[in-house]
Nucleic acid binder design. Structure first.
Length: 293
DNA sequence: CACTTGACCTGTCCGC
DNA sequence: TGCGGACAGGTCAAGT
């Protein structure tokens, strides 16, 4: 599911729902989905409480009172859903909520709290993972060492963006902004949305883009991320937040999954779907002409 | 080092 | 209705 706005929405939800609740039990049926030994789980998770929920890039960090942290990566189809003790599945079948009962066949990890509520880690494709790390070691993790700046943070200037892009100057701009070591949190949806906003063809080589256009892209990435957070993220297929609810950014998307529909800028032009950086890519062929073509 | 491709998985959709 | 193939929000480890 998750790009920065979706992970941020889950983080905000969990911060309201799971803090300071003693954990009775954590279970999994799949070692890859929960990377920790049974004795570590018994010692450092069971009996502890989640005291803080952080996000870095697309990673969630559940900080425990035991000074350990559960790191969570949702990858493509991961979900973290909290279910209160008195929750009635299917009541009213609201269209913005999860339909199925939990746990279900894609449940990988269950955290049970002493008040009989549960946090479910569901992941259809099994790419996602949770792992237990001493909180003091979190910053030493390989990913944390390599990941680039947060796009919505104060210090992330157009100059820093330009400079970090130089490490990928011979590849396409889409591949470059998907690279988490360049900047954190951009995935396939917001890459396409921001490149359309900045009127840059996704297959343009980084070295062929003027600094003024890079600044436009910097601005678009920030705006599209901010808007999506306000809309609770994008539910393209599976994404739901910590309460089991969908996000509505897809209602505001300009190009993503809109192939065949008119470009919002040029109603005569139709959005096309092409392949760039090995990913399905959506463009307006009129406002995103390939430079030097 | 930088770049590209395949692998990790399950489910769905589309064409024959 | 069934079957094969392509594709899906993301990273990694390999290959060149």
């Amino acid at each position: 599911m998750p790009e920065l706005p979706e992970v941020e929405t889950v983080r905000a939800g969990l911060s309201r729902l799971v803090l300071n609740k003693p954990i009775r039990k954590i279970t999994t049926d799949r070692a890859k989905s929960l990377q920790a030994s049974v004795s570590e789980l018994e010692q450092f998770v069971e009996g502890a409480e989640i005291v803080n929920v952080r996000r870095r890039a697309k990673l969630l960090l559940l900080e425990l009172s035991s000074k350990y942290t559960l790191m969570v990566h949702l990858k493509m189809t991961g979900q973290l859903v909290y279910v209160a003790p008195d929750f009635r599945f299917g009541a009213g079948h609201p269209s913005d909520s999860l339909r199925g009962e939990l746990p279900d066949k894609s449940t990988r990890v269950v955290i049970e709290f002493t008040n009989n509520s549960h946090l479910y880690f569901n992941d259809q494709r099994k790419f996602g993972w949770m792992k237990l790390v001493p909180t003091i070691e979190v910053e030493n993790e390989n990913f944390m060492q390599k990941v680039g700046p947060e796009p919505l943070e104060e210090g992330f200037t157009p100059e820093i963006f330009y400079e970090r892009l130089q490490r990928r100057k011979n590849t396409t701009i889409k591949a470059a902004i998907l690279d988490q070591t360049v900047l954190a949190g951009v995935g396939n949806i917001y890459a396409d949305e921001a490149l359309w906003g900045a009127k840059i063809h996704p297959a343009t080589r980084v070295k062929d883009i003027l600094a003024t256009k890079i600044k436009d892209l910097w601005q678009e990435i920030r705006e599209v991320m901010q808007l999506s957070i306000e809309k609770g993220g994008s539910t393209n297929r599976n994404y739901i937040n910590a309460e089991g609810k969908k996000g509505s950014y897809m209602d505001f998307a300009r190009v993503f999954r809109r192939e065949g529909q008119p470009c919002p800028r040029h109603p005569d032009a139709l959005i096309e779907k092409i392949r760039v950086a090995g990913r399905g890519t959506h463009i307006c062929p009129v406002c995103q002409e390939l430079a030097g073509d």
